[in-house]
């Protein structure tokens, strides 16, 4: 888990640990930490180990007959070979949703931080308002919005953007729209938090030094908002890559994502392959996140 060490919440592993100001010595700290820590160890760390172990079971076993632990690495080869389309599609959709969330979320976060004035709190409530109702019920309403004879499709057909009989529902576009919609607040909130902290005098100073508004934005605002942008991208990309609700409710058999397959394999009782696919997904995500965080140069900012 080298990537995780660079993410927020993790502190430098080497060197003496920095204890917070006013921290008290004694046993109380350990006692307070114990119940929650045990819960996390027992139901997060142990299951992760069990998942990896299960991914190496002999696939000829079954739930009724039991499995034998045979170090069956072939499970990974089979899982990645059989489901490479779904894995690639998941990563592609998640990347598209993250890109769309940046394009939509940045102006919104910027507007809330700098332009909203006394409407700031109201706009923030509107950003989290979708959370007040169920994820699945909201996703279903996209079935209506993107439906064949509804406003959006009719308008696009009238504009000749969509051909006669063209559809939006059950297309990759619908799935990415749903993913973007569902995870957009996770992009907007961290972006807003880091934009709001920016001292506006820095942007003015850039203007005084003859930077055009675009240059000032690129060199000052954008750079200072990088921690929010990186955090928001991770909070959008990671859940999108594992999601299968949008693919199922808004997509078609041709838009199945890796989550659909993992769920289906567990449902069919093929635990070794399902576990191997799940571990493969996790490893892929961690690798991509590590590269991204390094490229963005935000290791020390986070």
């Amino acid at each position: 888990m080298t990537a995780a060490a660079h993410l927020p919440g993790a502190e430098t592993p080497d060197g003496p640990e920095i204890q917070p100001r006013g921290a008290r010595r004694g046993l109380t700290g350990y006692v307070l930490l114990l119940p929650g820590g045990l819960w996390l160890a027992l139901f997060f760390v142990v299951p992760t180990v069990v998942l990896v172990a299960t991914s190496l079971y002999d696939p000829s076993g079954s739930l009724q007959l039991g499995y034998r632990m045979t170090g069956h690495w072939q499970n990974y080869v089979d899982a990645v070979r059989d489901y490479s389309d779904q894995i690639l599609r998941s990563l592609l959709y998640a990347l598209a949703a993250t890109g769309a969330a940046i394009l939509l979320g940045y102006p919104l976060a910027y507007a809330i931080a700098f332009k909203a004035g006394r409407w700031k709190n109201l706009m923030l409530v509107a950003v989290i308002a979708p959370f007040f109702t169920s994820f699945l019920v909201r996703t279903l309403s996209w079935q209506y919005l993107l439906g064949d004879n509804e406003l959006i499709v009719s308008a696009l057909q009238w504009l000749n953007v969509l051909g006669e009989g063209g559809r939006l529902m059950n297309t990759p576009f619908a799935v990415v729209t749903g993913l973007t919609y569902n995870f957009l607040p996770f992009m907007v909130l961290p972006l807003y938090a880091s934009l709001e902290k920016i001292d506006h005098r820095l942007v003015e100073a850039a203007a005084d030094l003859y930077a055009s508004p675009a240059t000032a934005f690129r060199l000052v605002t954008l750079r200072l908002s990088m921690p929010g942008l990186v955090a928001g991208s991770l909070l959008t990309f990671i859940p999108s890559a594992g999601d299968y609700i949008n693919a199922q409710l808004l997509g078609s058999p041709n838009t199945r994502m890796v989550g659909n397959e993992i769920q289906a394999l567990f449902g069919a009782g093929d635990y070794p392959t399902a576990s191997a696919l799940s571990v493969a997904l996790m490893v892929t995500i961690v690798t991509m996140v590590a590269i991204y965080v390094r490229r963005a140069g935000t290791e020390d900012l986070l």
Binding site: M1, A4, A5, L7, P8, G9, A10, E11, T12, P13, E17, Q19, A23, R24, R25, G26, T28, G29, Y30, L32, L33, G37, L40, A41, F44, V45, P47, T48, V50, L51, L234, I238, P239, A241, G242, D243, Y244, V258, G259, I262, Q263, F266, A274, S275, S278, V279, L281, M282, I285, V289
Partner: peptide, 27 residues
């Protein structure tokens, strides 16, 4: 409070938030 293993504790709290639901559910 002061305690040993602070970075391990931070990591333990952070990791579940960075794990996709499908992976956490399957484990």
């Amino acid at each position: 409070h002061r305690f040993r293993g602070r970075s391990a504790a931070n990591l333990l709290v952070f990791l579940p938030m960075a794990t996709p639901e499908i992976v956490m559910g399957s484990s």
